[in-house]
């Protein structure tokens, strides 16, 4: 049965999701910045790891900050 006590009882998905995406962002960013450059011959000499790492880090931290500040506001 659904009672007021057990409603909304799951943890916030934004936290694992934000963590995963931020982690990917950091990995790609570091690999793009410090890894070998020869692999970008495939991608028309665009360092796509660096660009995409930054994008993912932004998306990931956005989730984490919404989860963190949203929770504080609710209290």
């Amino acid at each position: 049965m659904i009672t007021p006590e057990n409603r909304k009882h799951f943890f916030d998905l934004k936290i694992p999701l934000g963590t995963l995406l931020s982690f990917y962002g950091i990995v790609l960013l570091v690999y793009g910045a410090f890894g070998p450059k020869s692999i970008y011959a495939k991608s028309l000499n665009i360092d796509v790891n660096l660009i995409w790492g930054i994008v993912m880090l932004i998306v990931g931290t956005a989730f984490l900050s919404v989860a963190f500040f949203g929770k504080r506001k609710a209290r």
Partner: peptide, 11 residues
């Protein structure tokens, strides 16, 4: 295989 370098390829 043709266009993605390792990294975004894994993604």
């Amino acid at each position: 295989a043709h266009y993605l370098p390792n990294g975004v390829l894994g993604l």
